[in-house]
């Protein structure tokens, strides 16, 4: 008899919890459906009432043209940093594609914790700011710290030739698209933020790019 009573209490408690849960689910579902429908009606009615169809369609054409005008430039470079690929494009056509190396995403902290560097390739819209033949590398502080060396005071001690390949395209803030000695690492994220390209591909990209050529990095 006592066992039956306990079972009954359990069933009532479980039933009540289930009922409240389902009721809440129902209310939540109703609220979700209702708010979805309300938004569309509100925002559309207010704007649609004010203007007639032809005026809206004309405005849309103008807006589309304005967006298209933003992309009317010649050759541009697209960098896919996730897949380590470079695409040289004109309109929707791909002129050249190359396997590259982008930033490693690693962090370097100066012993003593004064400075910190994150080796990411920057993302966004850039443009070619400089074109350099036979570039040399002006080693920044992090290059010495990373190697466990003392940061030199003389400028000449920072100069290293031959490591950036035959060409370099600067796109701002000390970042370059340049050549590499480590061709077997192309396709991997290993750089300090610059974009390394194989010699032959770099030659083509260098030849096709002008100062002002857009560089899209994602």
């Amino acid at each position: 008899m006592l066992l039956k009573k306990q079972h009954l209490i359990l069933v009532i408690v479980f039933g009540s919890v289930l009922f409240v849960f389902l009721a809440l689910e129902g209310i939540g579902y109703y609220l979700g459906q209702k708010s979805g429908a309300e938004w569309k009606r509100e925002s559309v009615e207010t704007s649609a009432e004010k203007k007639d169809l032809r005026a809206i369609q004309t405005k849309n054409k103008i807006l589309k043209r304005r967006i298209e005008q933003l992309s009317t430039f010649g050759v541009y470079i697209v960098i896919d940093s996730a897949n380590n690929m470079l695409y040289l494009k004109k309109g929707s056509n791909t002129i050249q594609e190359a396997v590259i190396s982008c930033g490693s995403g690693n962090i370097l902290e100066e012993p003593g914790g004064k400075r910190r560097w994150v080796f990411d390739t920057p993302r966004g819209v850039f443009e070619v700011k400089s074109k350099i033949l036979d570039p040399y590398w002006l080693k920044p502080d992090w290059a010495f710290i990373e190697e466990g060396e003392k940061v030199p005071k003389e400028l000449k001690e920072r100069i290293e030739a031959g490591v950036l390949g035959d060409y370099a395209l600067g796109f701002g803030n000390g970042y370059f698209i340049h050549g590499t000695l480590y061709t077997r690492l192309l396709g991997r994220n290993v750089t300090h933020g610059c974009i390394r390209v194989g010699d032959e591909d770099l030659k083509a990209v260098y030849a096709a790019s002008l100062i002002g050529t857009k560089v899209f990095i994602f």
Partner: peptide, 18 residues
């Protein structure tokens, strides 16, 4: 995190990258 001084002589990294 890169440990300063852990880079090998030829500038090659152990490929512990993101």
């Amino acid at each position: 995190n890169i440990k300063p001084g852990s880079v090998t002589e030829d500038g090659e990294f152990k490929l512990a990258t993101l």
